[in-house]
Computed example of a mutant assay.
Amino acid sequence: MRIRSRIAPIALTAVMLGGGMAAATAATASADVPKAGAQIQSCYGSAKNYTAVGDGSTAIWPAGTAWARTTSNCADINIKVNYNRHVKVCYRHGCQDYQYAKAGQWKVLDHVPNGWEFYLEFSGGNNGTGKVAY
């Protein structure tokens, strides 16, 4: 009986230490794996404020004859409008169809490689503001 009383605490201590090591190993292993949203956070973290300038029927960003150029920050063109808008992406070879973007929500407009020149066109012609990540 006395032997059992000595073995039980030792065995319990060994189990607890072993479990703690397994938990520490699992925590370390999971710290090395990037979280699913890490790339998205990085992409949106590089977002720029935009102001689209209108002429009565459409509004454009960037204004004038400027072009934006896709970067390695994102694998796509994303927009977050301040007001519900229809927006399309235009490239040197042509424009896509309008897509509906809801205020305050990120919208992926297109998946494109790095280095593509583009501009955004908003329907309605009113000036618009928001964020763009590309």
Rank of each mutant, 00 (worst) to 15 (best):
A68S: 11
H93K: 08
F118P: 11
C90L: 02
D32R: 05
H86Y: 11
Y100L: 14
G45L: 07
G18H: 00
K102M: 04
A66Q: 09
F118L: 14
V53G: 07
T70H: 04
K35V: 15
K80A: 11
H86S: 10
G115I: 10
S30Y: 14
R6H: 09
P62F: 01
G64Q: 03
P34N: 01
W61V: 02
Q105D: 12
G20F: 11
K107R: 15
A47D: 04
L17D: 02
A31Y: 06
G18Q: 07
Q41S: 10
W61C: 04
M21Q: 11
V108F: 03
K88T: 00
A22W: 02
G130C: 09
N78Y: 15
T129D: 03
K102D: 00
V15F: 01
T51F: 15
A22C: 02
L120H: 08
R69T: 15
C95K: 13
C74Y: 08
I79G: 06
Q39L: 09
Y98G: 10
A47K: 09
A23W: 12
K35W: 14
Y44C: 05
I3G: 00
L120F: 13
A27G: 12
K80W: 13
A36D: 10
E121G: 06
G54E: 04
A75T: 06
S72T: 04
A66L: 08
V33Q: 12
K48L: 15
A68W: 05
G19E: 00
G115Y: 07
T58C: 08
R2I: 11
I10W: 08
E121S: 04
C74L: 06
C43T: 09
C90P: 00
P62V: 00
T70W: 04
D76E: 09
Q96A: 12
A59R: 13
S46A: 08
L120I: 06
R85F: 06
W67N: 12
N127V: 05
V81T: 14
A59Y: 04
K80I: 14
R2P: 01
C90R: 04
Y91D: 11
T71A: 08
Q41T: 13
V108G: 12
A59E: 04
K35M: 14
V87G: 03
Y44G: 03
K107D: 11
V87W: 07
T13I: 02
I77R: 10
R92K: 12
V81K: 13
A52W: 14
K107H: 14
Y91K: 14
R6Q: 08
Y91M: 13
G124Q: 07
R85K: 10
A63D: 02
D55T: 05
A52T: 08
G104V: 01
Y83T: 11
D32C: 03
L109K: 13
Q41V: 14
A11Q: 03
K131Q: 15
G45F: 03
G115C: 01
H111M: 15
G104T: 04
V108H: 10
K35Q: 14
G124S: 07
T58M: 14
Y44R: 08
G125M: 10
G104P: 01
R2Y: 09
C90Y: 01
V87T: 05
I79R: 06
V112C: 11
G130Y: 05
A47N: 06
C74P: 03
G19M: 11
N114A: 10
F122E: 10
L109P: 10
A27P: 07
Y44K: 06
I7E: 09
R4Q: 12
D32A: 12
A31R: 14
